[in-house]
Design a protein around this nucleic acid. Structure first.
Lengths: 203, 203, 203, 203
DNA sequence: AATGAATGAGCCTTCATTCAT
DNA sequence: AATGAATGAAGGCTCATTCAT
């Protein structure tokens, strides 16, 4: 008996749904999930409050969609870098590309990243989405590295760890909070770590 | 902005304030900041709702205090490990100690960690507290490492980065979400990275 | 107040209007007036939300039409029983027929009955409809009884009262809520009352 | 984890809770359950909207309390009449008292009566309350009649039926909707029915 | 210092009704 | 005539904060 959620097929409807997601994306980024109310989402999307519930089950449902977009926005570019890597791999250059791109992406999405991670703690569905997509990405990156000729043991663990390190560093850099840190120096160090991580077997 | 906030001098008052902070700590950990209301904090602390506002300006003020405790709980043990490290340093052993301790700590505080990071995004004061205390810790750890005879360049950057890596890994381990990852293997890798990070100059 | 309400002349239109009324009838019966929304009525009727307002002024207008149908459904069969009563009247048999039929009808419409009565309380128009049609029925039944040769004083009052008693009993029976009551016994008693009610003058 | 509902012990609190129930009683009577909103209840009770939820779980919870009051208001006076009936019983006089009293009560509560009955259809808890109390009353009245020396078979069924008839008639009288009915005449008839109902065995 | 009842703004959501197509 | 997307007012409920005692 629950009210039916429109699954928009027509172009205009899809556009409108995307507008709402975009508005949610922005607001969740700016002021967090709890700092945003549905009225504001609607307003920024240029629609009425009512229609939001025509496209989404509830506020959380918007979040789920935002999460999907977020994941794509953050991880897909990294995949692209991996796919475009020339053979034989210049690990240093590849690492640097990934680092720089990640910093770039974080600059636009760092706040949302935190918000989402925090919600994953509370909301099982959000958590599941997160994990599922992380899985997919790690697998793809690992496979690509193997294809590029790398033959390190425990490639999955290394890739996953590398991603975590890069993200952690990007976070650090973007927030730029610690005056005593020279982020360029740090970047060099991170880069070296990554190279060692995947060059190890040559030893 | 009212200055009617008591700065408790008497023993009983201090005790009561701490009880409130402890209750906040627990609840924020369990159900997050927005999942907790002040009435519940008061109830768990065994005090009245009203008196909470005798000791704290507002709900956020409690969070600030919880943050302090959190930082102490998470970083101080690491400091202790550093302080107790014998000379000459066995880097591998030290790294392992730090990693294991951090995992331990995360197991109790991971949710709170996410919550706090998310709030730092939105709330400048929370953010400031976070940064200020991180600064202090990084400085102390760096100093200790120098005192222990390590002579690596950019020690601050390395310490900070090491902390981030270990935390990231601990997070990963605690949530244990990715079935394809062997966390023991990953731990070995992390350990090796840390050793390399601080052994570099001996090269 | 807009006079854009179509008075459907064409066959297809009439059919559509009736479908909406039927859907309303069913839904009001199942989940009450306030538990039903116009979208659901439209859906069950197999029409669009918009067109509902082509045939009806508002939701209440649908209710008025449902009320008409309800009255017909509940009282007309009783009239039929009256009209088919053979002369000379077997009061006991007639009473029994009426009682059994009313129980039957109540079994399908009891919820709607309550809903309508409740709304009549608040809505003058609903109330008026109710009264007007009740009037008509009582008059017809009284007339028929006279035609059948009964010559009791205050026939109108007696008929009306009889109807009320039977309905009250039917309600009781249908909801079957009171475990301590033997409904067959009660039925006998009601039957006897009705016979006495119209046999009185023979005394 | 649900917010605790205050169980008011102190005089002032009880008084306040009663004020809210009274406001609910009045508003539900005047404009029905769905025509009333919690803000209005609070306003009429002279309290804030928030505190309403300090005393009641939700709007329906108010209704439950109103229902209790209603039952007491409507049925208790009838009990009193029964208890005060002198022996030997003058059935006609007793019937008349009951009828008149019921009309009186209906005059103040008829609208609420309809509202409650309608809700009982939808809400199992409301229904249960209704039934449970009706049971209690029927039992008490039956017992009292026996104590007064009446020895009719199926006393429970008769009492219950009598109650229904009287209520039905009272309803009719109060709404006074049918111009063609002489309510005094009807009352005489009802009275006679009741007498017959309990005098039967003397036959 | 302490209590906990009270406040009221604010939020999510629903739904009768309208309107562009 | 018909569609169904869109509107936006209104309602139930929560909760940080205040206040009378």
């Amino acid at each position: 008996m629950k009210s039916t959620i429109r699954v928009p097929q027509q172009e205009r409807s899809i556009e409108k749904k995307n507008k709402i997601i975009k508005a949610g994306y922005e607001l969740f980024s700016e002021v967090g999930y709890y700092g945003t109310n549905t009225a504001e989402i609607a307003k920024r999307a240029g629609v009425s409050t009512g229609i939001v519930y025509g496209y989404f089950q509830d506020k959380r449902d918007i979040l789920i969609c935002v999460l999907e977009i977020y994941i794509d926005k953050v991880y897909l570019p990294l995949q692209e870098i991996m796919n475009n890597a020339a053979q034989p791999v210049d690990l240093h250059e590849l690492a640097l590309s990934v680092i720089n791109k990640t910093i770039d992406l974080h600059r636009q999405n760092a706040k949302l990243h935190n918000t989402l991670h925090s919600l994953a703690t509370t909301d099982e569905a959000v958590n599941a989405q997160f994990i599922c997509l992380e899985n997919k990405i790690t697998e793809q990156m690992s496979a690509q590295l193997v294809k590029l000729g790398l033959n390190v043991p425990n490639i999955t663990e290394r890739v996953h760890l590398a991603m975590n390190i890069v993200q952690s560093f990007a976070h650090e850099t973007v927030f730029d909070s610690h005056s005593y840190i020279d982020y360029d120096t740090m970047k060099d160090i991170v880069c070296k770590i990554l190279v060692q991580l995947f060059a190890e077997t040559t030893k």
